[in-house]
Design a protein around this nucleic acid. Structure first.
Lengths: 185, 185
DNA sequence: AATTTTGTTAACAAAATATTTAACGTTTTT
DNA sequence: AAAAACGTTAAATATTTTGTTAACAAAATT
């Protein structure tokens, strides 16, 4: 059975994991993922597939919290539902390859960013152009509108570049350019 | 003086800007920047350098809010203090080149991520290794520790890759590989 | 030197967000 | 068919975050 050494050793292992789980949660926090979702991800990172009840137990939180937490992580594309045979419960597994994490997470963000902003720019430019083409409008104002229109236009290449960046991540092309190195000496 | 047409035209311009400011704030929100900081950035994006009072007036918020907001944006490296001669007030200007925004913002994040996690991994591995080298510890536990140690070790290349990515962004190298296109047809 | 001006800190209030408990609907087992 | 298991939704509660007002400290002007 358990002796003192064993208990202590087990505590050490848990502590080591906690250090990394906390830092994962902290960095995810940087990107706007709530601490508790980050904590859940970090926990799942060290586990195989988990049921909601297993998460609840590990984190000492309620089941609805786990349910919503997992959903959030699924939205970020970094947790997936799995099928564990023999149980009727849903099981979930965290993406453990951080390169894949990076790809899934940031691709999602950047695609969204491009879409939202290009959409807004489109609408804004429509409004500005109506004004620019209106012969009734004062020259000074027209000029102002033209400048703003240009500023918006000038930002478009950025969003297109983001889209290209995502493509190159999704195709894996980026890793030809910036290769993953096995280990630094 | 102001006539009806002019008022309406001015409102249109403001509305067009608002559309884009809101979408900038929304996308910044995606990355964990609070809505109000994003809003401030969006506002500054359409202005030259601004004093705290000018921001306060534009956003209809208090001065301390502007003070803390600007500080946050400075932390993200997307707003800088400038020197406007003739006034004793501090002035600030937003980074308007989104490529530079991208570079500043994500470089900061990724460097931080690499640092935090590599630090945690280092500590965690120390703890695990003590256990692994302790002859008193049970084989089963030792084995578990070895596996976790390996998992942590295996994640290091990712953080090193992040650092390389940052280098290639800061050197501009990434734009050789993924060129910015002037305009799509 | 006294008074303004400017920016920040501190204390407080308000609002937003997270989390829990309880209730519900669905599916599965007995 | 009844009971149990499971996940989600809804309502209530806690907690955190955000923003304001007021006090303060530093610097500059008069």
């Amino acid at each position: 059975m358990s002796n003192q050494h064993e208990d202590q050793a087990r505590a050490s292992i848990e502590n080591a994991k906690s250090l990394v789980i906390d830092s994962i949660a902290e960095t995810m926090d940087l990107y706007g993922v709530t601490r508790s979702a980050g904590n859940l991800y970090g926990t799942m990172y060290f586990e195989e597939d988990m049921t909601l009840d297993e998460m609840r137990e590990k984190l000492g939180m309620s089941k609805p919290s786990m349910s919503t937490g997992v959903k959030k992580l699924q939205d970020y594309n970094i947790v997936k539902q799995t099928f564990r045979k023999g149980t009727r419960r849903q099981t979930f597994v965290a993406e453990k390859d951080f390169f894949q994490f990076f790809a899934n997470f940031f691709s999602k963000m950047w695609i969204r960013e491009a879409k939202i902003n290009l959409g807004a720019i489109h609408k804004a430019q429509q409004e500005l152009n109506e004004l620019i083409e209106d012969p009734e409008v004062d020259e000074v104002l027209k000029n102002e509108a033209v400048l703003i229109d240009r500023q918006m236009e000038a930002s478009k290449p950025y969003y297109h570049w983001l889209q290209k960046l995502v493509s190159s991540i999704e195709s894996g092309e980026i890793f030809d350019v910036l290769p993953i190195e096995d280990e630094e000496k």
